[in-house]
Simulated scan of single mutants.
Amino acid sequence: MHALTMMDLVRTLLILALVYLAYIDMRTFRLPDAMTIPIIAAGLVFNYLPNLGLTSFPNAIAGAFLGYAFLWGLNFIYRWAKKQNGVGMGDAKLLAALGAWFGLSALPGILLVASISGLLGGLIWLRYQKQSIRSAFPFGPFLAVAGIIELLWPQILQTWFLNNPI
């Protein structure tokens, strides 16, 4: 198989997996380990292969580890302060998967896009569901969209900010 064709296939499969995870999370408020853990492993294996990876293997390992650790730590602090979970561990595993595919350097942009779209989309979701502002809403779809943006337009935020200083 030609290298470009292989890369297109990999991108398509990753996008389909992220869209499916977003759909599951919207319907069930769950991101199943049966999907997130294999995506983490696939990202690490893909970035280990020579001439195919989206980032270096050490960057992918750091992205997976710190992606999970960041949301786990955020939830730990929230749970300590509010006595309830604020972020699901499925979201942490999905961010770890995105870190495994795109590396540590992509995580800030992914989190920024997911957080801003999650804030706006969450308010729309809660209004549509006729729930209060304190009700939970799924964050996985926003992580998935941010991951797709990173896959199709890598490092778009960093490039934009470097070319358009504020």
Rank of each mutant, 00 (worst) to 15 (best):
G103Y: 06
P138T: 08
L21S: 07
Y78N: 07
L54C: 01
I116L: 15
A144G: 05
D25G: 02
D33S: 14
A136M: 08
K83Y: 07
Q131N: 02
F57E: 06
R11A: 14
A17I: 09
F102A: 04
A42G: 09
M7V: 15
E150M: 10
L152N: 02
R134Y: 08
R30Q: 14
V10G: 02
A114V: 08
T36L: 03
F46Y: 15
P58L: 02
S105E: 12
R30C: 06
M35N: 09
L112F: 14
I116Q: 09
P58F: 07
L111N: 01
L98V: 06
K83P: 02
Q129L: 07
I61T: 08
R30T: 13
Q84P: 03
M89S: 04
F29C: 06
P141R: 03
D91R: 07
K82G: 00
Y20M: 14
S115A: 12
I61A: 07
L157S: 07
L157M: 14
A41D: 01
W125Q: 01
N75Q: 11
K83W: 01
I156K: 00
L54D: 00
I39R: 03
I110R: 01
L152S: 02
L112Q: 04
A144W: 06
L54E: 00
L13N: 06
N51P: 02
Q158W: 13
G140M: 09
L18N: 06
L14K: 02
F29N: 14
P38T: 05
W160S: 10
V87M: 15
G86R: 04
S56V: 10
F161D: 01
L54T: 05
T36V: 12
I156R: 07
I166R: 09
H2M: 06
N59V: 00
Y23S: 10
L151P: 03
I116A: 12
M1S: 11
A97F: 00
L13I: 12
A60W: 04
W80P: 01
P154R: 06
I124L: 14
L151V: 10
V87G: 00
A106T: 07
K93L: 01
V145D: 00
S56P: 03
D33M: 09
L16M: 15
F70Y: 13
P138Q: 11
F29T: 11
I110K: 02
F76I: 00
A69G: 04
G147M: 12
S132A: 12
T5S: 12
W101T: 03
A97E: 06
S135D: 13
M26P: 01
L95A: 09
A114M: 10
L13C: 13
F139K: 06
P141W: 10
A146E: 06
G88L: 05
F46N: 04
W80A: 13
A17N: 13
A69T: 13
G109W: 01
A106D: 03
L94A: 05
E150T: 12
A114W: 11
L71I: 14
L107R: 03
A64M: 11
K83F: 01
F57G: 04
L18M: 13
Q129S: 09
L98D: 04
G121Q: 09
G90D: 09
Y48Q: 11
L104R: 03
L94G: 00
L52A: 11
Q129I: 04
M6I: 15
M89L: 15
T159I: 14
S115L: 07
